[in-house]
Amino acid sequence: MTTRFAPSLTGYLHLGHVLHMLYVWGIAKAKGAKVIARIEDHDRGRARPEYEQAIFENMEWLGFPPDLGINASTAAHPSNFRQSDCGNHYAEVLETLEKRGLVYGCECSRRQILEKQSDGQGELCYPGTCAEKNLPLEGNTVRFRIPSESVAFCDLALGDCHQAPVGQCGDFSLRDRTGQWTYQFCCVCDDIRHGIDLVIRGEDILSSTARQIQLFQALGAPVPAYFHHPLICDESGEKLSKRQRSESITQLRETGAIPKEIIGRAMFSGGLQSCEAPLELTDALALMGNI
């Protein structure tokens, strides 16, 4: 069994990431699984290289070494565990979908899509305006033709789930008009080539699950098991952001915090312990041994 830790290069790690690492490494330990570390830097507009070394140094300092992939000593070197190095692979996968007629070019702007959005829709849902226009992929947004059926899956943390991407997001983007790959596409491509059969991630990504399952199925790949865990939220109820430097592990280290303290704070904030005293990492892992 193989799972992964895949931070993006949009900021420093914070307590929410520590909670996530506790789940990833804890469940991996309980199941005898390997942990792959990779970098999700598909978002070229927000990715900052200076964050990468800090991410893996903090992982090592906290005691979360990966079994495979990037680590503190290899983070500066090219690797197939960094999305920015894998454009050729994504292009090959896209070509496979194109040959099967499962993608199309879209010239719609975000404003045009918003104009057709129903009141109270929530997530931006593409109505399929360009689905039959036969526009070229190059120079346009590339969209995946999603099946109309709903998707049922059993989340290991939340139980039975049902989602209908056709009404959630519509035909979603795999690559934007500037040539930048999207999270949904890169994530599935990476999970397939890295052999990920257990995806552990926060509940904020739950809505992406069914559409990713549809991509796995379209590519003829096994669908991994999913475990969506609770998040740490701030006083306003919003999830912690890597742009909030006051919550970053780098900042906490600068103030003299030690790994045990940070792990304890993450556990307490994430509901993994009922007392205020920080627990040892081994105790944190034992808490998840019944999964």
Rank of each mutant, 00 (worst) to 15 (best):
F5Y: 14
S8A: 11
T10N: 13
L13R: 03
L15Q: 02
H17T: 00
V18Q: 10
Y23T: 02
V24D: 08
G26A: 11
K31C: 07
R46T: 07
R48F: 02
R48E: 11
I55Y: 13
E57N: 11
I70T: 02
H77M: 01
S79F: 09
N80S: 06
S84I: 05
A91Y: 01
E92C: 06
V93D: 06
G101S: 10
G101K: 13
V103S: 09
S109M: 06
R110K: 13
L114T: 09
K116A: 14
C125P: 02
G128P: 04
A131P: 01
A131Q: 15
N140M: 10
R145Q: 07
S150A: 12
L158V: 00
G159S: 03
C161W: 04
A164H: 06
R175A: 09
W181A: 09
G195T: 08
D197I: 12
R201I: 08
R201H: 12
G202N: 06
E203W: 05
L215T: 00
G220C: 05
V223S: 02
F227C: 03
I232W: 09
S236G: 01
K239D: 00
S241Q: 02
P259V: 07
K260H: 13
F268T: 00
S269T: 02
G271W: 13
L272V: 10
A277Y: 01
P278G: 13
D283P: 03
A286V: 12
